[in-house]
Amino acid sequence: MKKLIFFILFSSLITSLASARSTGCKEGNCDNGYGKWVYTDKTTYEGEWVATKKHGQGTETWPNGYIYKGEFKESQWNGIGILFFPDGSTYEGEWANGFMNGQGTFTWSDGKQKKGIWKNGSFQE
């Protein structure tokens, strides 16, 4: 019985150590420079870092298929960038505080487009 409890505890320790190791900077310099960071849910960011924050050009890939390529500021999507939705739809244009803000074009997967000004993810008619 003692052996079994020890085995269970040891296995959980190894599992948590393994999962803890799965997050972090995998390549390059994730403090100041160019590096690749992998999160526990397999979201990845590969791009420029300034003072341990995503800053500059980079690509963030979510495990469920969202991909953002473009400018980052203080770890947020800020500036010019393109977001690919999992179904193939895209938004290309200006971003601020992680949302579609400014001039941009939303293209549905069937080719339909909406072009104009966006505010916090909503199209301004």
């Binding site: 849910d41 979201t43 969202y66 939705f85 949302f99 916090n120 909503s122």
Partner: peptide, 12 residues
């Protein structure tokens, strides 16, 4: 969470 965050892109 990622599915929720994705849907939130269009619902501020």
């Amino acid at each position: 969470q990622r599915a929720i965050m994705g849907a939130n892109f269009l619902n501020f």
